[in-house]
Amino acid sequence: MARRAAPEINAGSTADIAFLLLIFFLVTTTMDVDTGITRKLPPPVENPDEDVDVKERNVLKILVNSHDMLMVDGKRSDVRLLKDKTKDFMALHPDNPDYPEITTKFIEELGKEFPASKGVISLKNDRGTSYEMYIKVQNELARAFNEMKDERSVELFGVKYSQLVDENKIKAINKLVPVRISEAEPEDIGGK
């Protein structure tokens, strides 16, 4: 019995079907990458009355009030100056009582001891501060620390921090330049 050749399926409309799907995905796609400043919150304090003793000279106090004005170490300041001020504060100033104390820190990854500043940045904002201002301040602080990391990295390994590939080196830099930003427990100052 002669077999009849099966008629070929008309594939001409596959393109149309694919187009339909394509358009669906085109419309639903959101290509935006989420970017932001990553921070780690401290665990809640158990004894609110217990004050952690930090020496005055080791702290750079940053206050932002409800009118988005900035005060750094008791003086009015500007966001544009904040980065350099932070870097200056966190830099090593041996034998200068105006700057933070210096300790030595053993870095396992490099097998050597390094001098490190004991400085902490303390950030306090009012409930009425705008989020925009807060992010500006956080951004400047992040920039200060990133630049310090870059400088340290260039000094030790000859490349910028962002171009480091070796995980140990990245760890070492992170230990050498810890991002020490402490946010004060919220307080109501200045009302609404």
């Binding site: 989420d34 970017t35 932001g36 400043i37 921070r39 919150l41 665990p43």
Partner: peptide, 17 residues
Amino acid sequence: KQELRKSGAFKINYSTR
């Protein structure tokens, strides 16, 4: 943020452009 601290969600990201 206080509530997140209490809940133990410490890793946060301030979304920015």
